[in-house]
């Protein structure tokens, strides 16, 4: 049987994580194939509803990747995103999903290696949790 390969939606800030993912590619670093990158102008753009929608559509995990603290192009977007993610993890628990399925990371555009690490870290964590119950109900993973 094929091993479970989690689908993880990664909301990546244009100024850091998205470029870092690009760099990871240029460096020929391998990262899990289940990562689905969505470029956003700032991690602060990622509203709670957007994250919930990713889960509703069957994502096994969601990661939000924004700039390092103090480096946000829009001053505080990454800090807002982090607070929102923390708050939403509590809601996920109340919905009946493991809060570990959602995580926030901070990195810079030069951190291609770190991006690959984060992707692996998240994929392993979510693989341990198994497929999202929402995915099982929507389409067999």
């Amino acid at each position: 049987m094929k091993e479970f390969e989690p689908i993880i939606v990664a909301f990546c800030c244009h100024y850091c994580a998205y470029a870092a993912a690009d760099l990871a590619g240029s460096l020929r670093l391998e990262y899990p194939p289940g990562i689905r990158i969505v470029e956003v102008p700032c991690s602060g753009r990622v509203e709670e509803e957007l994250i919930l929608k990713a889960f509703a559509e069957g994502a096994d995990g969601v990661l939000v990747a924004g700039c390092l603290e103090g480096d946000c192009h829009f001053q505080k977007g990454n800090i807002r995103a982090r607070k929102r993610v923390e708050h939403l993890r509590q809601l996920l628990k109340e919905i009946g999903l493991e809060p570990e399925r959602l995580a926030m990371y901070h990195l810079s555009s030069a951190m291609g290696r770190r991006f690959a690490e984060i992707a692996w870290e998240m994929a392993e964590k979510v693989a341990g949790l198994g497929p999202s119950p929402l995915r099982r109900r929507t389409r067999e993973g």
Binding site: E47, K53, F55, A56, E94, I95, G96, L97, L134
Partner: peptide
């Protein structure tokens, strides 16, 4: 509007999970 969309989405998810 934002809170409405968020709550509606969360309520549907909760029902699907439970």
């Amino acid at each position: 509007e934002r809170e409405v969309r968020r709550l509606a989405q969360a309520l549907e998810l909760e029902r699907r999970v439970r």
